[in-house]
Simulated assay, not measured.
Amino acid sequence: MTDAGAVSSGGAEGEWASVAEANFTGSIRVRTTAQGLPLAVKVEAAELHRDPQQLAGELLRLCQKAANRAGLALRKQLEEAGLDAAGLARTGLPTEADVARQEIVAEQDYDTEPQSWLRTV
């Protein structure tokens, strides 16, 4: 798995990119397609003792965060390639402000605080 937020080209089945995200402690990590579909999920054993709905919510939040960041990265690539503002707007890809706003809302909607600050080393 790559570092959180990394975008790499040449993903599975013609995808233009895959994105990796992790929670604050790194105990839950996902790698998704640019659309947020999970390709890999890694969950440390301690996280498996959480409420299943909380764990599922955290996985979904990370997948959505990865998709938003991948969309932003694609938007930046198109902008660097010379696509004008009107063309960028038609793509529907998120802006930096959109991504920031969605991440703030997601943090408020979900309990993103770790269950414990202690981690096995």
Rank of each mutant, 00 (worst) to 15 (best):
M1H: 05
T2N: 12
G5H: 05
G5V: 06
A6E: 08
V7R: 00
S8I: 08
S9H: 12
G10R: 05
E13M: 08
G14I: 01
E15N: 06
E15C: 05
E15W: 00
W16E: 02
W16Y: 05
W16T: 02
S18A: 08
V19M: 11
A20M: 04
A20H: 00
E21K: 04
A22D: 07
A22P: 09
F24R: 14
T25C: 14
T25P: 09
G26H: 08
G26Y: 04
I28P: 03
R29K: 15
V30N: 00
T32F: 04
T32N: 05
T33A: 07
Q35S: 10
L37D: 10
P38V: 04
P38W: 02
P38H: 06
L39Q: 03
L39V: 04
L39H: 01
V41D: 04
K42N: 10
K42T: 09
K42E: 11
K42L: 08
V43C: 09
E44Q: 06
A45T: 13
A45G: 12
H49T: 14
H49L: 12
R50F: 06
P52F: 08
P52Q: 12
P52E: 11
Q54V: 15
L55I: 14
E58H: 13
L60H: 14
C63A: 14
C63Q: 09
C63F: 07
K65C: 07
K65F: 07
A66Y: 00
A67H: 00
N68C: 15
R69V: 11
R69Y: 11
A70N: 00
A70I: 03
L72K: 05
L72F: 12
L72T: 07
A73L: 02
E79V: 04
E79F: 02
E80R: 10
E80P: 06
E80T: 11
A81F: 01
A81N: 07
A81P: 04
G82P: 10
G82H: 07
G82S: 09
G82N: 11
L83M: 11
A86S: 07
G87C: 03
L88S: 00
A89W: 02
A89G: 07
T91P: 06
T91E: 03
G92Q: 06
G92S: 09
P94M: 03
P94Q: 03
T95H: 05
E96L: 09
A97L: 04
A97Q: 10
D98R: 03
D98V: 04
A100C: 10
I104M: 10
I104D: 11
I104G: 08
A106C: 11
A106Q: 13
A106S: 15
E107W: 10
E107S: 15
Q108I: 08
Q108E: 13
D109L: 15
Y110L: 15
Y110T: 14
T112R: 13
T112G: 14
Q115F: 12
Q115Y: 11
W117N: 14
L118S: 13
R119A: 13
T120Y: 15
T120I: 13
